[in-house]
Design a protein around this nucleic acid. Structure first.
Lengths: 182, 182
DNA sequence: CAGTTATTCAATCATCTGATTGATGGAAAG
DNA sequence: CTTTCCATCAATCAGATGATTGAATAACTG
């Protein structure tokens, strides 16, 4: 793997593990087994490194936003994909949470997070419209507002404190939400 | 105001402003106009100060969890109260978000956050049961799961990055959620 | 008032942390 | 082979940061 990529991935892992509060450039370098100066060779400042992490995380997430399958199945598939991601790459959601909080204080990150949210929401709205046409949806609510609500709910579900290590808590909530709209 | 309380309130404000990442004991003391040693006189360690902030924030929030009014009106009143709180004390939600993230890494804070969430959720479930009996609710979903979902949604709604300074975004989502279940 | 306790402060520490510097080894270019 | 460029490292810096110390002051007690 490229040094640059290794460093970003290490920073990503440490961010998930300790949050921005505990993210240290030294630890990132150490995790890759490299001198601090080497880190600064690739990322002149900590900020630049963080931008790298943002790009990496958003890329990871974006890759889950292109559900395949028959139109009517897409919404279900998307939810299933999110459940799988929650199981297999929980760090991603922790990082997303950290970024969401930081977005309040960092305009650049805020813009990126909002942009991804908007894409996600637009995709959901489209799926909802599709599903509505097929009568697979029980509510007549505005698809855009409903999509915004789903995004908020999912973010909230993932941010909630780990419930006595019940990994199925998120799973259950996703299913409840699915049932509520379908 | 008591010194101790002043310090906690200052820390609370700074936490909302800069997150855990940017919370400095010096700044807390300075905000109160007091020497750092004075802060350490009341709070031997930064951790103890943070515990104070947790107690303060949770108290603030708990005080909003006792809606009044006719049983049938309580759910509506609770949502209205949350909307008002989002308008008038937005810092509380930022702090709750910070605590939610920290709960992943701090067992003590995790326990507190979970406990408050549980209380909140139980109250919501009771309200939902009431509302269901009166036929004021459209869905037959399990009140407990529905309550958990609402908690998640509200958390998510408040954590989402400020949308181009549209303070009504949260408002709109709360109304959508209300309509979806009622 | 004398003695004791509760607050507050100036000064200082030890450590942490992001960043820089100058040097070294190796690969690529001529 | 020599020159140039890339990647890396050891050493170090300056400023930040949580915490401590000992003294000064105020408030209370008997």
């Amino acid at each position: 793997m490229e040094r640059q990529e290794e460093l970003v991935r290490a920073a990503y892992d440490l961010l998930a593990d300790r949050g921005f509060e505990g993210l240290r450039t030294r630890d990132v370098a150490a995790k890759v087994g490299v001198n601090i100066a080497t880190l600064h060779y690739y990322f002149p400042t900590k900020e630049k490194l963080i931008r790298g992490v943002v790009g990496y995380a958003m890329g990871q997430f974006r890759s889950t936003l292109t559900p395949a399958g028959a139109p009517g199945e897409q919404l279900r598939a998307h939810f299933a994909g999110l459940r799988r991601l929650a199981r297999e790459e929980p760090a991603l959601f922790t990082v997303m949470g950290e970024l969401a909080m930081r977005a309040h204080r960092d305009r650049a990150i805020g813009a990126i997070v909002r942009e991804v949210d908007k894409t996600w929401q637009a995709m959901l709205a489209a799926l909802l419209r599709h599903a509505a046409k097929e009568g697979a949806i029980a509510t007549e609510a505005n698809p855009d507002e409903l999509a915004a609500l789903i995004v908020a709910t999912l973010k909230g579900a993932f941010i909630l404190p780990p419930d006595g290590r019940d990994p199925r808590a998120v799973d259950r909530q996703l299913r409840t939400l699915e049932r509520l709209i379908a």
